[in-house]
């Protein structure tokens, strides 16, 4: 799939993500309560739930932007524990797209995309730029490569952010509400890119309230509330016959207007 040599620790036959009995506290506040979740390679999982339910916290634990307090997280068989080496390794294979884009404002679009491959994967500039242009074409903005992020629209910025994550050629992509900061007319262009990625077989964990997107591409939808996973089902079932009252209430609020 890629020209980049993978480190040998990753076991691509193991489940992409395996979370068992995960707990996380902010001080005394119990933010995640024994979360269990397995995502296999190529699977697309959509996570939804009310504000403050711990969705961001959970996916940020996967690449250790948040440290968890107990439980185990394995990515392709590599366990995320106290070891900084395993954290570095996993961040190389797990890309992330943020609600606020978080592009580096002092670098051009192209530099944003080539920085990490050159520094982390240690590939040459020429190769990194070629890869970057390929992915910028994929997100349909190759002509903006020399601009600075501040000169792009929100939708364009988010597509650059996706391209930037792809340039590391990750096995897994995490999305934390990628369309929530966008004006309605820009949401579609970002979702289109995400659908394309899903169809190409990328493993994706996506926190979003875009239920249309969930219906279209998700293999599974997960509903969280108060730090717990309440319900976990394929989209038809999740939207058709939700089991829990809380899910039903949430769906009526999200779909109601």
């Amino acid at each position: 799939m890629s020209a980049i040599a993978r480190t040998n620790v990753m076991d691509l036959t193991a489940p992409a993500i395996e979370i068992t009995d995960l707990n996380k506290y902010y001080g005394t506040f119990h933010a995640l309560r024994s979360i269990n979740l397995t995502v296999s390679k190529g699977e697309k999982v959509v996570v939804c739930g009310p504000s403050g339910s711990g969705k961001s916290t959970m996916i940020r634990c996967i690449n250790q932007l948040e440290e968890h307090d107990s439980g185990a997280i394995r990515v392709f068989g590599t366990q995320l524990d106290d070891n900084l080496g395993s954290i570095d390794e996993i961040r190389r294979e797990v890309g992330m797209v943020f609600q606020q884009f978080n592009l580096f404002p002092h670098m051009t679009v192209l530099e944003n995309c080539t920085l990490a491959p050159m520094l982390v994967r240690k590939i040459s500039r020429a190769e990194a730029e070629a890869t970057a242009m390929r992915y910028l074409e994929k997100v349909r903005i190759p002509d903006q490569a020399q601009k600075f992020p501040g000169q792009l629209s929100g939708g364009q910025q988010q597509r650059v952010a996706i391209a930037r994550a792809l340039c590391m050629q990750p096995e897994i992509l995490l999305f934390d509400e990628p369309t929530s900061a966008l004006d309605p007319e820009m949401i579609a262009e970002v979702l289109d890119v995400m659908v394309t990625l899903a169809q190409e077989g990328m493993t994706m964990v996506c926190v979003t309230h875009e239920m249309g997107f969930a219906r279209k591409v998700a293999d599974r939808v997960i509903f969280m509330d108060k730090g717990e996973i309440i319900e976990e089902a394929p989209p038809e079932e999740f939207f058709g016959q939700p089991k829990s009252d809380r899910t039903r209430l949430f769906l009526s609020q999200v779909l109601g207007h």
Binding site: N63, L65, D88, R91, R92, V94, G95, M96, F98, Q100, F101, N102, L103, F104, P105, H106, L115, A116, L119, V120, A161, R164, A165, M168, L174
Partner: peptide, 26 residues
């Protein structure tokens, strides 16, 4: 913004790269 350093971490950049390429220039 806090997201700058988080994005750099998510890309796998080391502390020194994050500091000297992303945080200090800004």
């Amino acid at each position: 913004p806090k997201g700058q350093e988080e994005a750099a971490k998510a890309l796998g950049l080391t502390y020194w790269h994050r500091t000297f390429r992303i945080v200090l220039p800004q």
